[in-house]
């Protein structure tokens, strides 16, 4: 059994490599300087301490938070595609509290702002959870709707109550240094949010594998009816917990991004992290510890793609193509495996 599990990861890794090579092959056919592009991809992601500590790991941090959010929800069969909205809610709340807490010492201001982000994200997902449990509203639809509402809410905040005092730019003023997440290495952008995210990944893994509540989450994901009738599990309570935890993780991601990278709230604060999160979680087969690796891979891919654009003129949106192909590749591979098992 262990051998078969290992083989699955080997084939998954091979799928990723094949997809990246195939895309580079297409680039070559398209007349791009492929060796140069490949070198730029590698150098932009891992080639220097700047690439690793100020690009790759900085981009991996929000992906890890939202990847965990989606991963834990999907494990319980909750199709939360609203990590984007929950992240925005978290960023908005963290900035709002952070602006108010500017005069307080860091030991008080930081946890309060982070906590506000987690609570806002949890509350935002909680709306979808409540609608689902109370009225049977499909969470796919409700979380999607709430993404739009959150985006408009941010748009209003940065043009209304939270706008900078000159009222020229649609953004808030910069957060006071006491609510900046400290950097981990002097001179690099990598910040405390990464440590928090990794700790949460380990915590999520521990929760799922070593606690009774985690077992209930996995049981509900494996089959709701069996979990209720054979396991005597309270579906409503477990599902509610999953919605709240998932939203809180995404909200923390937003808080971490606002307090560690952007230091202000504005409309484009997330370039779709909440949607990339689905790819991040799926590539890791929803395993919290593996999500750390897949977030790193996607962070590296995006940092490398930006470098490819600068140095080899390759469009950086190619990273989305690779992400999508990885998801489709994983889906096809799982299908092939399922067929073999049936045969």
């Amino acid at each position: 059994m262990a051998g078969r599990t290992d083989a699955r990861w080997v084939i998954t890794a091979a799928t990723v490599v094949v997809i990246i090579l195939a895309v580079l092959g297409i680039l070559m056919a398209g007349g791009y300087d492929t060796p140069r592009a490949l070198a730029a991809l590698w150098n932009g992601a891992f080639g220097s301490s700047y690439a690793l500590f100020s690009a790759t790991l900085v981009r991996a941090t929000p992906l890890l938070f939202v990847g965990l959010a989606v991963g834990i929800a999907f494990r319980a069969g909750v199709l939360n595609i609203g990590a984007e909205g929950q992240l925005l809610a978290g960023a908005a709340a963290a900035v709002a509290v952070g602006l108010a807490m500017g005069g307080f010492p860091r030991v008080i201001a930081l946890p309060l702002a982070l906590g506000a982000g987690a609570m806002a994200g949890g509350a935002w997902a909680g709306i979808a959870g409540w609608l689902n449990l109370r009225f049977g509203v499909l969470e796919v639809i409700s979380t999607l709707m709430l993404n739009f509402v959150a985006a408009y809410l941010v748009s209003w905040l940065v043009r209304g109550p939270l706008q900078e005092p000159t009222r020229v730019y649609p953004q808030t003023v910069e957060l006071a240094p006491s609510v900046h997440l400290p950097t981990l290495i002097d001179g690099h952008r990598m910040h405390l949010g990464l440590v928090l995210a990794v700790v949460l990944a380990v915590g999520a893994w521990w929760f799922l594998t070593h606690t009774a509540a985690g077992f209930r989450v996995r049981a509900v994901g494996a089959g709701r009816d069996a979990a209720r009738s054979a396991g005597g599990i309270n579906l409503g309570r477990t599902t509610a917990l999953v919605f709240l935890a998932s939203g809180a993780l995404a909200g923390l991601g937003g808080a971490s991004e606002a307090m560690g990278v952007t230091f202000a709230l504005y409309e484009g604060i997330s370039p779709g992290y909440g949607y990339s999160a689905i790819a991040v979680a799926l590539l890791a087969r929803l395993h919290p510890l593996v999500i750390v690796l897949s977030a790193l891979l996607f962070g590296a891919l995006e940092a490398g793609a930006a470098a490819m654009q600068r140095e080899a003129n390759v469009p950086s949106v190619l990273a989305s193509v690779v992400e999508a192909l990885i998801v489709l590749g994983v889906l096809s591979f799982d299908h092939a495996r399922a067929r073999r098992r049936h045969a």
Binding site: V317, A319, V321, E323, A324, V327, L328
Partner: peptide, 8 residues
């Protein structure tokens, strides 16, 4: 995934 693919 299809949406991400088409956008990219």
């Amino acid at each position: 995934a299809v949406t991400l693919l088409a956008l990219g």
